[in-house]
Amino acid sequence: MILCLHIGNTHVVGGVFDGQALQFDFRRTSHARISADEFGLFLRGVLLSNEIEPNRIGQVALSSVLPEATYALSSACRKYFDVEPFIVRAGVRTGLKIRYRNPQDVGADRIINAIAAVHQFPDRDLVVAGFGTATTFCAIGADKTFFGGVILPGVRTSLEALVTRAAKLSSVEIAGVDHVIGRSTAESMQSGLYYGQIGMAREIIGRIRTEVFGGQQPLVIGTGEFAGLFESSGLLDVIRPQLMLEGLFLALLLNS
């Protein structure tokens, strides 16, 4: 069995593959100063609660945006599973032609999403829209060229900024709404968060279509914690919540 783990700014997202199939997935809050033992005990607990003996884990694929946590999780894999993890980092095989000025600047999360996207939708122009701590857009050509993308504040990050910086605003539930005019402060904030993301996304996807794909419409893939929020918005052609885990699994196979 293969354990795939991504350490994001907000969550650790994980899943276990048996053969080609994702058996289950999980998430927990992430922070940079978590210890190897905390990681190890958590992972063993998750496996046992899903009736999987930890010694059945033969490989681990790991990506991260938090260097300190990467070290702790790598140590946990060695200590608790006796496995040296494969880590997605600069220099690993991806199957992509990365057009960033400095390819090492591309976040591991965006790379593994792109790997999964081109595998699932071959020979297609793609935009991968990730809705998490940040909202990101990556443009990928039918020939697997990773052209680059756009990064902007995510839904929760925008909400936290409002609550932190505006004295009279309190936190609200993040939710899709069917009307733009709010009749209370909470409704107005929910509308702004929801339609603000939709407006930004439409503008960005339209500009990517013009600048990168010569006016042709790419397939837009939604992923990340909040992708489902925009399912009925017309923004996304498909939603793949587990795109990141699938990309990690494929990256491991590419480098085995």
Rank of each mutant, 00 (worst) to 15 (best):
Q190K: 15
D25Y: 12
R156T: 05
I115R: 00
G8T: 08
A251E: 00
S35E: 13
A76D: 09
R33W: 07
G132K: 03
L43E: 07
R240M: 15
K79S: 13
P241N: 08
S233V: 12
R202A: 14
P67T: 05
N55Q: 13
D18T: 11
I204K: 08
N113P: 04
R33A: 10
L62I: 00
P241W: 03
G141Q: 04
D143F: 09
D37N: 09
A36P: 08
S256N: 06
L235T: 13
I112Q: 00
L159G: 00
Y194S: 09
Y100W: 11
T164I: 00
I204P: 06
R28N: 09
L96S: 11
G58R: 08
E38R: 06
K168Y: 13
I205T: 13
A21P: 00
E173N: 11
Y100E: 11
A186L: 02
F249V: 01
Q216C: 12
Q242L: 10
S74N: 01
Q120M: 13
A69Q: 03
T94N: 05
A161P: 00
N102G: 06
Q59F: 02
N9T: 05
G91A: 07
D178H: 09
K79W: 04
L126C: 11
M200H: 06
R207Y: 07
T10W: 00
G40C: 04
C77Q: 04
G132S: 04
E84H: 08
D18Q: 11
Q20A: 11
Q190N: 01
D125C: 14
R156Q: 14
C138I: 05
A227V: 11
S158G: 00
L47R: 06
R183G: 07
L245I: 03
A227G: 05
Y100K: 10
L41D: 12
R165T: 06
G45L: 13
C4K: 01
Q104M: 09
Q216S: 15
G196C: 04
D178L: 13
H11I: 03
L229I: 09
D82W: 07
R78C: 06
R89A: 10
E211V: 07
R202G: 11
F213P: 11
P85K: 01
H119E: 15
E187I: 06
V212A: 12
L250A: 02
I52M: 12
L162E: 02
Q242N: 15
H119I: 04
I198H: 02
Y71C: 01
Y80S: 07
L229V: 05
S63P: 02
F39C: 14
I204M: 12
Q216L: 14
P67G: 05
F213M: 08
R183N: 15
G132T: 04
E203R: 13
A69P: 03
V212D: 10
D18C: 04
G40K: 01
R202K: 14
F230W: 05
T94E: 02
S171F: 00
Q217I: 12
R209Q: 15
T10I: 02
D105W: 08
I7T: 14
A61P: 01
L73Q: 01
L250H: 09
I208G: 07
A69E: 05
S35F: 06
F81D: 05
R101W: 03
D82A: 10
E53D: 14
G141E: 10
T135M: 08
V163I: 11
S35A: 06
R27V: 05
G95K: 08
L3D: 10
T10H: 01
F39D: 10
I115C: 01
T94K: 08
